[in-house]
């Protein structure tokens, strides 16, 4: 009977593609990570764990891990907090919520690479608009006093702003102390709107009667109601938003490749960029594969943490 075999036609293509395009590459990467393989060279040597050894011992790769983790630790908390804050504010507005929602979501839709180039212009140390605005504040007495802290009696030169007014404002992407933070800023700018819509969806799924019950129970302040109802009810959303933001920010590439190429002095040398540079540009496929495997390990850990939190939660039927 036809029906007993027809499913093979339905699942066959998907299985073949999953195996060939997702599972097989993982194995290829795993195998190549123990070799010194490169394209154009017919033979290769097994070199054991040498690639992994390099990853943990060479300072370049230490910088890579530092850059990636710092980036994630900057972007995830801030973009999640901004997303939640924006969602809470927008949900409580009487008018105009839709407008803010559209505006904050705009960067999610826009081509990141293109917007990164615009940010690069905006952050240009000399002609860029950002430093221009910051500089213009130096000449306005009260603003300078406020931002430099001298209104509190501090020495303006001791503060970041006062010091920058006297010397000059940072080079941003060209300064190794600022580059990663600047890249992270663009990441936050681009990503928090996504978190915001996830939180807004989470908020609409909180039953209104729970808030009313909290009112009746005596949760009089907005903070009490947030603690008693909103925050616990957003539990699943929190887990999801944090995981997806982490995985997304681990994958940061566009901004780094277009704006800093990992520099200055490897301060923005994040994992996916390292993978690209070693593997594709320098044809060092062994070390590139090793980075791939470590990267997959990170993603797996993040996902397992998510699964753990999701399963621990008892859902409200």
């Amino acid at each position: 009977m036809g029906r007993s075999r027809v499913h093979l036609w339905f699942i066959g293509p998907a299985i073949i593609l999953m195996m060939g395009l997702l599972i097989l590459p993982v194995f290829v990467a795993a195998v190549l990570s123990f070799t010194d393989y490169n394209l154009g060279n017919p033979s290769f040597n097994w070199i054991g764990v040498e690639n992994y050894d390099r990853l943990v011992s060479r300072s370049t790769y230490k910088k890579m891990f530092t850059a990636s983790l710092t980036y994630v630790l900057l972007v995830v908390p801030i973009s999640v907090a901004l997303g939640l804050g924006a969602a809470l504010l927008i949900a409580s507005l009487r008018i105009g919520g839709e407008l803010y929602k559209a505006v904050f979501f705009l960067p999610v839709m826009a081509t990141l690479l293109a917007m990164a180039i615009v940010w690069e212009f905006a952050l240009h140390p000399i002609v860029g608009v950002v430093n221009d605005i910051l500089r213009s504040g130096c000449d306005v007495g009260w603003l300078h006093a406020l931002l430099s802290g001298s209104w509190l009696g501090g020495d303006p030169l001791q503060s970041w702003y006062g010091h920058a007014c006297a010397e000059d404002f940072p080079l941003w992407l060209g300064d190794k102390n600022y580059a990663l933070g600047t890249i992270a800023f663009i990441g936050i700018w681009q990503g928090f709107g996504f978190n915001m819509v996830l939180y807004l969806a989470g908020l609409t799924s909180v039953p209104r009667e729970l808030y009313q019950a909290a009112h009746m129970d005596g949760a009089d302040s907005a903070w009490e109601r947030f603690r008693l109802v909103t925050w616990p009810m957003l539990g699943p959303t929190n887990v999801f938003v944090v995981t997806i933001s982490s995985i997304r920010s681990f994958q940061v590439f566009d901004t780094v490749e277009a704006l800093t190429r990992g520099g200055p002095s490897k301060s923005t040398y994040v994992m996916v960029y390292a993978m690209f540079e070693k593997g594709v540009k320098q044809n060092l496929l062994g070390i590139g594969s090793a980075i791939t495997i470590v990267f997959l390990g990170f993603v797996l850990i993040l996902t397992l943490i998510q699964v753990y939190f999701v399963n621990r939660r008892v859902h409200y039927a």
């Binding site: 599972i23 590459p25 993982v26 290829v28 995985i247 594709v280 496929l285 594969s289 791939t292 990267f295």
Partner: peptide, 18 residues
């Protein structure tokens, strides 16, 4: 397979295509 981001395995895919 949901666990595997395609961007992460770009390198082996690139090798295979090459």
């Amino acid at each position: 397979c949901l666990l595997i981001p395609v961007h992460a395995i770009a390198l082996p895919l690139y090798i295979m295509l090459a």
